[in-house]
């Protein structure tokens, strides 16, 4: 878990340095595959819940691309710390 956490943080930093730290995740995905986000949005809004896109997906896609992997890495570190055995 610790290795995965470090990998995610390094991935975030790499994305930040390569694409700039201000680049939104959505813009990065859109540049990679222009049709992916329109299809994903249509799928979420038409077949799941219309509000889910605006409230759940968009806030993530609007954030800089490095944020999600770095937060994911930090979360794994936190999880590891929480579940790790403690001395009595």
């Amino acid at each position: 878990m610790r290795i995965l956490a470090w990998l995610l943080i390094l991935l975030g930093l790499l994305v930040g340095f390569v694409f700039s730290f201000g680049e939104p995740l959505g813009a990065l995905i859109f540049a990679w595959d222009q049709s992916l986000l329109p299809r994903l949005q249509a799928g979420v809004q038409r077949y799941l819940l219309p509000w889910m896109w605006d409230l759940l997906f968009l806030p993530i896609l609007e954030r800089p691309a490095w944020v999600a992997p770095v937060l994911g890495g930090c979360f794994l570190f936190l999880l590891r710390w929480l579940i790790a055995p403690r001395p009595r």
């Binding site: 939104p24 959505g26 859109f30 605006d54 609007e62």
Partner: peptide, 9 residues
């Protein structure tokens, strides 16, 4: 227009 939040379009 919430769709405009998708600045990449």
């Amino acid at each position: 227009m919430p769709g405009l939040r998708q600045s990449w379009f």
